[in-house]
């Protein structure tokens, strides 16, 4: 588990890759209650001008939240978390799906054992989250 005293501003966290398939989006729709069909139905996604089915923005945010909480070792450590959805994650209908690559940097150390992580998420070399910041409490 990462300790506050051991963390230095500017430290880069090793990026991780997260796969997302159509089945993952069906599971996320059920778990979250967001049944907007653009996340599961290609015909409807295309009918509203999208290139294909896209992941829920909140799925991508959840993966970034995982990145932060797995670094901290505790899902309860993420006390503030904000993102801007800059581009959709397009999920093709194959076994591979899409890949989201998430990385981060320790941007600032705050009082109260808190650190600010600046996160970056990309899919297909496009930034899918911008202004992504998580404030994490460490032991």
């Amino acid at each position: 588990m990462v300790k506050y005293a051991d963390v230095e501003t500017g430290t880069e966290l090793e990026p991780k890759r997260y796969q997302v398939t159509r089945l993952d989006l069906v599971k996320y729709a059920g778990a979250s209650g967001d049944f907007n069909p653009i996340h599961t139905n290609e015909r409807i996604a295309r009918s509203v001008g999208l290139p294909d089915v896209i992941a829920h923005g909140m799925f991508t945010m959840a993966e970034a939240g995982r990145f932060a909480s797995e670094w901290a070792g505790d899902p309860g450590a993420v006390v503030e978390f904000g993102v801007r959805f800059s581009s959709p994650v397009v999920v093709p209908d194959d076994d591979q799906g899409a890949t989201i690559v998430i990385g981060g940097t320790v941007e600032e150390k705050l009082d109260g054992n808190k650190v600010v992580l600046a996160l970056v998420a990309r899919s297909n070399d496009t930034k899918v989250l911008t202004r992504a910041r998580a404030v994490v409490v460490l032991p």
């Binding site: 923005g57 909140m58 993420v78 006390v79 978390f81 993102v83 959805f85 959709p88």
Partner: peptide, 10 residues
Amino acid sequence: VVHGEQRFEH
């Protein structure tokens, strides 16, 4: 409608 931004303060 698309989701533009989201923030949580816990």
